[in-house]
Simulated assay, not measured.
Amino acid sequence: MIDWHFNPDFRGREAERLFGTLPATFAVRGEPIAKAPLSTVERVAADGTRYYVKRYVGSGKNAFRRWFGLRGLIAPQRVVKEWENLLLFRQWGIPTATLVGWGLERAHGSFVRGALVTEEIAGTKDMGTMANDDDPRLRDRRWMAEVMRQVARYARRLHDQGFAHNDLKWRNLLVDDRATPTVYLIDCPSGGFWRGLLLRYRIVKDLACLDKVGKYRLSRTQRLRFYLDYAGHARLSAADKRRLRKILKFFAGRE
């Protein structure tokens, strides 16, 4: 059984021929971008723009990791979480990539293959690459203040919903090239909802992931400003200080 969705905003365009069905999406070929044991990413040019095609196949090459064949029956598929989370971001007013096509195929209830297609966000660069390339914009305090304000706002919006990104790293933040930049959250296959102690742990992890690069690219003042923007406080409370200690220790000995 195939369950495939196509964004009606792209009807009548070349994208419909390329990505209008799951078989068509698996047949199209583009520029290889990334490859992993369970997925591939290719970039395809059409309609005067570019699209990213992420395909998932099988349940893993290792029998133990496949849970002896049960994973395809009972586990949430990463491809499903990925498109569900992008849709949630839009619902919460967080800029992200536009979904063009998404869905999966099952046989006898077990996962066979799945894919999602997103439209390229033109003129953007991920912040991880910017850090590696020593992009001069990172030294522009006004530009960085606007970017980090947005990151703080989006992180708080996720967490207020009881949701944690679980991989909130600079490489998953796109920034466009406008004078007043816009930040986009992308690539969230492992994000989800949590409660209580588990949510608090995941919140610390999200903020620690951001600080892994932030501690090298931001001043102490900028890092403090980011946290205060996130917390919505004018100054640190005792609870803020406890959380900050956890954030700073989170990856200790693991880098």
Results as ranks from 00 to 15, higher is better:
R106K: 12
F64L: 15
V112C: 07
R13W: 08
W143N: 01
T221W: 00
T25C: 14
D140Y: 11
G93S: 10
K249G: 02
D133K: 11
L138H: 06
T40I: 05
L210S: 03
V151H: 08
R245V: 00
R11N: 09
A34I: 00
L18W: 08
T129M: 09
M148K: 00
H108P: 04
R65F: 12
D206M: 09
G214K: 06
R13M: 14
R242S: 01
C209T: 06
R50L: 06
N62T: 07
R78N: 13
P37L: 03
R225A: 11
L38Y: 08
F26Y: 04
Y184K: 13
A234Q: 09
F89S: 03
G72D: 10
R137K: 15
L228T: 02
A145M: 04
R106A: 06
L185D: 07
W170T: 01
L87Q: 08
V204P: 14
A107Y: 05
P23H: 01
P32F: 11
M127K: 00
L207P: 07
D160W: 00
V41M: 07
N132I: 09
P136R: 10
L173V: 01
A24E: 12
Y51K: 09
L88F: 13
V175I: 10
V100A: 11
R178W: 14
A15E: 04
E119K: 15
R220H: 01
Y154C: 05
L18P: 01
R254D: 06
I203K: 00
I2G: 11
G232K: 03
Y52E: 08
D177S: 13
K205C: 03
F250W: 10
R43Q: 07
V80R: 12
A155D: 05
A179M: 15
P95L: 14
V53N: 15
D167S: 08
D133I: 02
L116Q: 07
G128D: 04
D135I: 03
V28D: 11
R225H: 00
A24Y: 04
H159E: 02
W170H: 13
E14F: 02
A152V: 01
T21S: 10
D9S: 14
D187F: 04
N85S: 03
V175A: 11
V80W: 10
M148L: 13
G69W: 15
R225E: 11
G72S: 15
L158F: 05
L18I: 06
R66W: 03
R113L: 06
D3I: 08
